[in-house]
Structure formats: structure tokens, C-alpha cells
Design a protein around this nucleic acid. Structure first.
Length: 455
RNA sequence: GGGCAGGUGGCAGAGAGGUUAUGCGCGGGACUGCAGAUCCCGUUUACUCGGGUUCGAAUCCCGACCUGCCCUCCA
């Protein structure tokens, strides 16, 4: 297993801190609005990475936080006249709902910043005691120049950063590069008691405190969107390593950003595509497929055309699954098929072991799909079982079985349609086909009769 | 100015020294009441440019040009 590490800039052999166990921390969102398709990329990908590590036999602990106190939350709540924490929790629930719909398996722990104030304060205390942080007018700042490795993750030097000149002006800071660990609260803002007076955590400290709380001073994999490399993750490293003197994470993984119609998705451009809006028009699996079908470190150019191009692929997977279910029989598969399956399995595993190359894995998966749709009997059964095995990782197959009253009703309709076809009443037959498609049931007339599947 | 990705066929996008990517589109054929799906064939020398390494480069090295993202709001 090899993993590309942002810090060293190279693919490294994966060796977890504790044999057989993997601790992963993925930075989740600050919840002050509905989640967009950009948020879904790291969520879906780390979900698949985690499932793959489990498939390999590792014990995986995945932690994915929600930041529920922050300037952006407070500003928006003030605008709307709402309670900031309540509003943040509303959006957090909506975020989890969206992720559930996208078949992202929930992390083992989904910690919230406001539930870890004590850990945060303790960490800041350590930093103050060690001389890495100082109090100033009720705020506490991290002294960037005291941490000699600052810039090692984003590969920049402190002198170069100042040239960027977008540094916030703040007379409480001793140095413009310093960043807030704790902010004194203004009246009416959420606040907690601390040795420095009432206040709230700065942006970066919650991830350091929570990840070390659950996974110890050195975790295996720390991940998130590429936009978090600087300053968020750089600051996490500074805080955490200054406090513990130990490396904070063994592997830093960053998922490329999603662009929409060739432009960065941002509220000011007005091209934000919300997950809940996406789900009104398309099945959730198509988004999984789109992200799996691209390289995770590269930027993803999202567009309507891209979705339209991916839908036929998903339909192919689903129709193949349905066809195999119909033709599978409880028999021994042939030697050829057993070998073919073993070959596909090896190729998919090899691709994923090479820095989670899901694109390469999907290529093998799709070529197997293409090959498998003709299979019958025991061969079809073996192929079906293989697809289910792979679905533990990818989670793309149609959900729910076609059975029960719904199945009976649809098959009744199809029988009626086929009767009408025999009588050459094609208007009625085509009406049934069109109306079924409108409610998401696709049908195909084949030599072996009419097949149907949900889309 | 600095950091990081890239520049691939009509389009979208993988691949990372020698063998068909794939999908969409387009043209032809098979099947079909039609549609869709599926299968077959075609879309004849795809890899920004210039040098270099090599028996062999889209892939490695050097240099240009171009694009995107980041440089204290970000997944």
C-alpha cells in the first residue's frame, strides 16, 4: 500500500503507527450553510479509502469533525437573527443527511468543537506554558516564528508569505503571521470561561485538540480538501507539534478542489451547486461514480455535461446487476470465469493500493461489468457475488431489492404492456414505457423478455 | 512575486518508457413494432512547443509558453 503524502511530496509505503490499526482524521465542514458538491468529494473519497483499508483487514478509526463555532457562523446567525450554535447544528444535521443520501458511511466519531472546549483550553494552556503562545487583550495567539518548521506542509517560507500581503491587520498580534487560538467574545456571542476570560476557540485549534484527543499525538492519516493545506493544516501542525514535540500525522492526504463550469465554486460568483439540489435531479450514486472515476488529487471540473456523461455508465452497472440477478443460478462457476474474477480482483486491489487510484480501479471494474453482462447460470452468480464484494468498497449498486408489492405492480404493468404490444397497441405500450421512465423505472425489451431497473 | 497541479483525439477525461484507455458525439451494420440497451466495424500517424537521455518518450531530464488553484473565507 502506497500513499502520496503532501508533506514530503512523494508516494510513501504505508506503515501505520500501530500494526493493523489505522487512525484517520478528516477535516469536515464549518456548518453555516447547506453543503455543496465540493464538500461531497473528500467525504465520498475518504469513505471509499476507509472501506478499502477495512477490506484489506485494517482496523480503521475514522474521525470527521464538524466545526460549529466560528466567525462565519456568528456573522450569518447575526444577519438572520438566530442563535449561532443552534443554526450551526441545523446545518450540521443537514450535512449529515446529505452525506447519508450519498451513501457515505458515517465516521466512527463525528466530534463537534463546542463539545471539546475543555480539551481545546488545555491544549492552549500547554502552548502558553511552553512559550509558543501569548495572551493579548483576552485573545490568545500562536507565535508562528517560534515554531521553526512553520511552512513545511505548504512548502513555503515565512519571508515569502509576508510578500503576499493579504495578512490581516490586528494590533493585538505581536507579529502579523500569528494566528488566534482563542478569541475574546463580544457581548451576545457564544462564549466559554477560560483562564484568559470569556471567549471561544480560534479556527484551527479544534482539529488539533479533537484529533489528538481521539487518536493520540501522532495519527496515521490526516486529510481534507486541498484548500485546507494553508493555513488550516499548516497551523494544525504548528500547534500540535509545538505542544507534543511529536510528528502530528504520518501521511497528509489532500483531495483536489471541485470547479463548476470551469470556475471555482464560490458564493460571490453564484455558481454553488448544493447537494440537495443535485439529489433532486440525479441519483446519488452518479456523484460517487463521478468522483471515483477521476484522480483524487486532481481538480475536478464539474459540469452538467459531466453528469450526463456519467449517467450511462451508472445505468450500465445497474442494468448489468439486474441482468445477472435474473440469470444467476445456484451452480459451480466455470474455471475460466473464476480466473477472470480473480484477475479483476487483483487489478482493482493493485490500483487502490497505489495511492487509492480509484480511477484505475473503476476502469477495471467497468471492463468487468462489460464482460459480465453476457454470463449465465453459475457464472452469473459468481460475477454477481464479485460485484457485491466490490460494493463493500465502492457502494454503487442499486439499493434495495426489486421485490415485494412494488415488484408485483411493475411486473403486472409490464405484462399488460406486452399484451398490448402483441395486439399492436403500441400507443398504450409506449405510454406505459414513458410514464415508468418518468418515475425512475427504465425498461428494456430484450430477447429474454422485458427487463426493468430503477434509476 | 512565491508555492502546487496541469496542458492528451470533435468533446470530456485516464495512463506514466515499447502493447486498444474509457465515456460521449459522429458514420455504417446486426437486433427491434418503435425506442432504448447490447454487439460488431469505422471516425486512417491524440499527447503545447524547443532541445536532450534512450534501441525506443505522451511518459524521464532541461528550457520556454499557456491554464487552473493556493498565499489567513474555504471540503
Amino acid at each position: 500500500m502506497k500513499i502520496y503524502d503532501t508533506l514530503s511530496g512523494e508516494k510513501k509505503e504505508f506503515v501505520p503507527v500501530h500494526e493493523g490499526r489505522v487512525g484517520i482524521y478528516v477535516c469536515g465542514p464549518t456548518t453555516y450553510d447547506y453543503a455543496h458538491i465540493g464538500h461531497a468529494r473528500p467525504a465520498i473519497l475518504f469513505d471509499v479509502f476507509r472501506r478499502f483499508l477495512e477490506y484489506l483487514g485494517y482496523d480503521v478509526i475514522l474521525i470527521s469533525n464538524i466545526t460549529d463555532v466560528d466567525d462565519k457562523i456568528i456573522n450569518k446567525a447575526n444577519e438572520l437573527g438566530k442563535d449561532p450554535i443552534e443554526m450551526a447544528h441545523y446545518y450540521a444535521r443537514e450535512y449529515l443527511k446529505d452525506m447519508d443520501a450519498l451513501r457515505v458511511r458515517r465516521a466512527n466519531i463525528i466530534p463537534k468543537a463546542t463539545r471539546h472546549i475543555e480539551e481545546i483550553i488545555n491544549l492552549i494552556k500547554i502552548l502558553v506554558d511552553k512559550g509558543y503562545a501569548y495572551e493579548s487583550g483576552g485573545d490568545v495567539y500562536f507565535s508562528v516564528k517560534k515554531f521553526k518548521d512553520y511552512g513545511k506542509l505548504s512548502h513555503r517560507k515565512i519571508e515569502e508569505m509576508l510578500a503576499g500581503a493579504r495578512v490581516e491587520v490586528n494590533e493585538k498580534k505581536r507579529d502579523p503571521l500569528d494566528f488566534a487560538l482563542w478569541k475574546a467574545s463580544k457581548p451576545g456571542e457564544p462564549s466559554w470561561q477560560s483562564p484568559w476570560g470569556p471567549g471561544r476557540p480560534g479556527w484551527h485549534i479544534e482539529c488539533s485538540a479533537m484529533s489528538m484527543n481521539y487518536l493520540g499525538p501522532t495519527l496515521d492519516i490526516h486529510g481534507g480538501g486541498a484548500d485546507l493545506i494553508f493555513p488550516h493544516h499548516e497551523n494544525e501542525i504548528a500547534q500540535s507539534e509545538a505542544a507534543t514535540g511529536k510528528p502530528f500525522a504520518k501521511y497528509w492526504m489532500h483531495v483536489g478542489l471541485v470547479r463548476f463550469e470551469k470556475e471555482k465554486m464560490s458564493k460571490s460568483i453564484g455558481n454553488v451547486f448544493l447537494i440537495k439540489d443535485f439529489l433532486k435531479k440525479y441519483p446519488p450514486e452518479v456523484l460517487r461514480l463521478m468522483y471515483l472515476n477521476s484522480h483524487y488529487r486532481k481538480p475536478y471540473d464539474f459540469s452538467e455535461k459531466n453528469i450526463e456523461d456519467s449517467l450511462p455508465l451508472l445505468e450500465k452497472i445497474w442494468s448489468t446487476y439486474q441482468i445477472l440477478k435474473d440469470s444467476a443460478m445456484q451452480e459451480e462457476p466455470s474455471k475460466d470465469i473464476a480466473m477472470k474474477i480473480e484477475d479483476a480482483r487483483e487489478k482493482i486491489i493493485a490500483a487502490l493500493e497505489d495511492d487509492f487510484n480509484t480511477r484505475e480501479a473503476m476502469k477495471e471494474y467497468l471492463s468487468f461489468i462489460n464482460f459480465a453482462r453476457e454470463l449465465k447460470g453459475g457464472d452469473a452468480l459468481a460475477a454477481l457475488n464479485f460485484l457485491k464484494e466490490m460494493d463493500e468498497i465502492f457502494d454503487l449498486l442499486p439499493r434495495g431489492e426489486n421485490e415485494g408489492k412494488e415488484k408485483e405492480l411493475i411486473e403486472l404493468l409490464l405484462n399488460v404492456r406486452n399484451e398490448e404490444r402483441k395486439r399492436k397497441n403500441y400507443e398504450i405500450a409506449d405510454y406505459i414505457r414513458d410514464e415508468l421512465e418518468k418515475i425512475g423505472i427504465k425498461i428494456e425489451d430484450t430477447k429474454e423478455g422485458t427487463k426493468w431497473y430503477k434509476i
